[in-house]
């Protein structure tokens, strides 16, 4: 809508401007008491509804800030609770380890698992004990649940344990047969599962012997007198399925291991000689 300049030059406009200007100057130079009266008059009348709106907005803003604060507080509590749970779990693991330590009839030393990020961590564990603590090569490594592995390399203050997931891991094992007789075999990681195996395999079971599903498998202690590694009675796992039949003369069975390496934070290294440690473990073994 174009507008013409002739409309904006009237005396009336100039007069209105001058009056407004005069009023403004008067307001500026008026005593503070008068100024306050005018100000409160305006805020209590024409501006009042808008100030009420602003007050509501402020209240909403405060409420939003409070909700955000409460959410942050709740989040902190959740994190704290998770930390507490993790500490409780750690505490329970350490208690179980202490119980095992108290029951073990052979010399031993507790060790912390020093986690290493990398592929080797799935088959080897770095332990916080070494030669200085009496640890030697081929010492069995156990946890409250059962077998973990065997010491492979020993340093002065640390050692490396080969855990049961390692392809070279073997343990002489025994379990209860269907005819209530002892059946012996060799336990190894389940090769078909690859390096990230979570199962074991009991092999070399004579073809005519049958192992019951659900039977517990322990170390047999065979050959300990001749320098064998594991004493009798360390739990290895539970038979969960039939494996393959090898050339018609032996059977294999799949075993769910008693201990999973991922859950380990502390272990026990058996440094002394012992024949039977079955009573020390949870479930008491054979």
């Amino acid at each position: 809508m174009p507008v013409g300049p002739e409309r904006f030059t009237s005396r009336r406009d100039t007069l209105a401007f001058l009056i407004c200007l005069l009023c403004a100057v008067a307001a500026r130079v008026a005593p503070v008491d008068y100024q306050q009266v005018i100000a409160s008059g305006i805020t209590n009348t024409i501006v009042a509804p808008f100030l009420a709106l602003q007050e509501q907005i402020e209240l909403l803003k405060e409420a939003r800030a409070r909700v955000t604060q409460e959410l942050a507080r709740t989040d902190s509590l959740v994190v704290e609770d998770l930390e507490t749970q993790s500490i409780r779990a750690e505490n329970a693991r350490l208690r179980r380890l202490l119980d095992l330590s108290a029951r073990l009839p052979v010399e031993h030393v507790a060790a912390e698992v020093l986690r290493q990020e990398g592929p080797a961590d799935e088959t080897m564990l770095l332990l916080s004990v070494g030669r200085d603590h009496g640890v030697g090569p081929d010492d069995p490594v156990v946890a409250p649940g059962g077998i973990v592995g065997v010491i492979a390399t020993v340093h002065a203050r640390t050692s490396e344990a080969m855990i049961w997931t390692h392809p070279d891991f073997r343990a002489s094992a025994m379990t209860q047969g269907a005819e209530n007789n002892d059946i012996f075999g060799i336990v190894a990681p389940l090769a078909s599962e690859g390096p990230t195996t979570t199962l074991m395999e009991l092999g070399g079971v004579p073809f005519r012997r049958r192992v019951l599903i659900g039977a517990t498998v322990h170390t047999s202690g065979r050959g300990v007198e001749l320098g064998g590694v594991y004493p009798i009675g360390i739990p290895i796992g539970t038979v969960i399925a039939d494996g393959e039949e090898r050339q018609g003369w032996s059977r294999t069975y799949h075993i769910r291991p008693a201990v999973h390496p991922a859950s380990l934070s502390h272990v026990i290294v058996l440094t002394g000689q012992g024949r039977n440690v079955a009573d020390a473990f949870e479930g008491r073994g054979p």
Binding site: A24, V25, A27
Partner: peptide, 17 residues
């Protein structure tokens, strides 16, 4: 201007002017 002066009366009248 008068309204703004009423809302922040530090320099009452200046806004109106």
């Amino acid at each position: 201007g008068l309204v703004t002066d009423a809302l922040s009366p530090a320099a009452f009248g200046a806004g109106a002017l």
